[in-house]
Simulated scan of single mutants.
Amino acid sequence: MQEHEKGLLWLLCVGALIGLGKLLSSNEAITTRLIFGRAILGAGTSTIAGVALMQFPALPMPALVGIGAGLGIVGAQYLEAWLKRRADKISA
Rank of each mutant, 00 (worst) to 15 (best):
H4M: 09
K6I: 14
G7Q: 14
G7H: 14
L8T: 11
L9M: 14
L9V: 12
W10Q: 08
L11H: 01
L12V: 05
C13S: 08
C13F: 10
V14R: 00
G15Y: 00
G15P: 02
G15M: 01
A16F: 03
A16P: 05
A16R: 07
A16G: 12
L17R: 01
I18S: 07
G19V: 13
G19S: 12
G19P: 13
G19F: 13
L20R: 02
L20Y: 02
G21P: 02
G21S: 08
G21W: 00
K22F: 13
K22C: 15
L24H: 09
S25P: 06
S26N: 08
S26Q: 10
S26E: 11
S26W: 10
E28A: 15
E28W: 11
A29F: 08
A29G: 07
I30Y: 05
I30K: 10
T31N: 08
T31S: 15
T32F: 15
T32V: 13
R33C: 06
R33M: 13
R33L: 13
L34P: 03
L34G: 01
L34H: 03
I35W: 03
F36H: 10
G37H: 15
G37Q: 14
G37W: 15
R38C: 12
L41D: 05
L41R: 06
L41S: 08
G42S: 00
G42E: 02
A43F: 00
A43L: 03
G44A: 03
T45P: 03
S46E: 00
T47C: 14
T47Y: 05
I48Q: 03
A49W: 06
A49K: 04
A49S: 09
A49R: 06
G50M: 13
G50S: 10
V51G: 08
V51F: 14
V51W: 09
V51S: 08
A52V: 07
L53M: 12
M54A: 10
M54T: 07
F56Y: 15
P57H: 09
P57W: 12
P57V: 12
A58N: 14
P60W: 08
P62G: 06
P62D: 04
P62M: 05
A63N: 04
A63P: 01
A63W: 07
A63V: 06
A63E: 05
L64G: 10
L64Q: 08
V65I: 14
V65A: 07
V65N: 01
G66T: 05
G66Y: 02
G66M: 06
I67S: 02
I67F: 00
I67W: 00
G68A: 05
A69D: 01
A69C: 02
G72F: 02
G72P: 00
G72S: 06
I73D: 01
V74H: 02
V74D: 00
V74K: 04
G75D: 02
G75M: 03
A76Y: 03
Q77P: 05
Y78H: 11
Y78E: 05
L79T: 04
E80C: 13
E80S: 15
E80H: 15
E80I: 14
A81Y: 11
A81K: 12
W82V: 12
W82D: 08
L83R: 10
L83E: 09
L83V: 06
R85L: 15
R85S: 14
R85A: 15
A87R: 10
A87M: 07
A87F: 07
D88Y: 10
K89M: 14
K89E: 11
K89P: 07
K89L: 11
K89Q: 13
I90C: 03
S91N: 11
A92Q: 13
